[in-house]
Design a protein around this nucleic acid. Sequence first.
DNA 1: CGACGCCTTGATCAACTTCAAATTTTGTGG
DNA 2: CCACAAAATTTGAAGTTGATCAAGGCGTCG
Lengths: 247, 247
Amino acid sequence: MTQTKRADVHNSDVPVLCRSCEARHRGVCGALTPPQLLELAKHTAKTTIAAGSPIISDGDNIQRYANILNGVVKLAKLTSDGRQQIVGLQFAPDFLGRPFSERSEFDVEAATDVYVCSFPKDTLNRLAKQSPELEHRLHEQTLKELDEARDWMLALGRKSAAERVASFLHFIALHIHPEADDTKGAVQFDIPLTRSDMADFLGLTIETVSRQMTKLRQAHVIEIENNRTIAVADLSKLKQASETNRD
Amino acid sequence: MTQTKRADVHNSDVPVLCRSCEARHRGVCGALTPPQLLELAKHTAKTTIAAGSPIISDGDNIQRYANILNGVVKLAKLTSDGRQQIVGLQFAPDFLGRPFSERSEFDVEAATDVYVCSFPKDTLNRLAKQSPELEHRLHEQTLKELDEARDWMLALGRKSAAERVASFLHFIALHIHPEADDTKGAVQFDIPLTRSDMADFLGLTIETVSRQMTKLRQAHVIEIENNRTIAVADLSKLKQASETNRD
DNA sequence: CGACGCCTTGATCAACTTCAAATTTTGTGG
DNA sequence: CCACAAAATTTGAAGTTGATCAAGGCGTCG
């Protein structure tokens, strides 16, 4: 009977707070057993953060980790004289925070309105010691972030402004429509960043971003419904533009 | 007595192959018990790879992982039309290979002559399942690589050519002389990359790299003994140049 | 309506690339 | 150890890309 109990990973044992939470399926919480979830749920707080607000500042002592339940978060670095580079974008149900480190190496800010479920570092660290599966999930996310960071290094180091903007739109399109076929098909979506954030992500100025958006529109690769809303009739054309556009 | 035996993590139980190996202290092998080391050592091969030779090609099925025992390895991505970007540099005793993935997302090449200890993926994966500490070490290395990748994103996206070259030299100087004081002090070292590799790392052309090296020499920030060998009289000047040099 | 924030467009300029040698360094065979 | 060829690096001149500087348009919210 204890066996039945342990095998039952279904709703009855899962904390109410967590029942409909995406992080319990695709996020790090999926590694936790119902009792562990309960332990964590005792200390969680769900919060909304307005677009543009800081979540963690560079060098802050991070007291809490969080899961993104909704919205987009940007990770930004600053040079000593104030130039900014966005070094990562995170989406639900990503884990937010740098495990095993006291300090954040960058600013964490809400790009859109963001809804997070946060919990104390200590609690998660304790659970991570009990659960290799939890560390494994964190490791998998870190590997995914590393792959993405390296993709952007290629774009920042070697792609033209036109290619970078197309790469970015392609990246966002596939994030918002994961089911879309990379090589063909039409999608519509909202860019979760302002032109200024796009510029900071792409290592360009807002003027250059704007000009390249205009060129993509004129080349009928995208339609700009309003500043944020974009329609792509054929993703393969966007992908093409992200790899070869020296104009 | 079995207790004494288990507690004894000293040389007697350690495979001969591993006794003087750096990876057993600072690398991933440090997570393994003597029996686990022995298991791994049964399948290891130590190999030398000449500078410029590929270790793993983009998209290869990786059959083996490896530890770097000596030398510098570059991780490079290519655009479809052949532009190259180096997305990471690895040094002894770094672990080489992408855990939990069949394919490499980039080319892995020896930057200098490299001496590695390689072993089959399967063996390590099996050990990783037994040993949370092993996965933890791999995770820590991934986190370190991610931090470095993001530092370079800032350089690639927002720093001038002069700043990038100075940043690179500063990075290499501290890697080769970890004991050096970041803010002052003199060091001398060999750059483990050619000008061409430096360019691919910094998202510049070899001509621009060369010109910026010349400027740093003329500004008495560095002395160029020969192409590869550099002397820095005052690291703080190099650091300064890596943050503010719009010339 | 007016002000403000955000985005676009235009003109000019600087940084970096490209193309083309010249020069230095390295590796090899005698 | 020297001579010579090949490779790597430096240097120069001209060309491009994207940044900077400067308006102007559009939409939203009081």
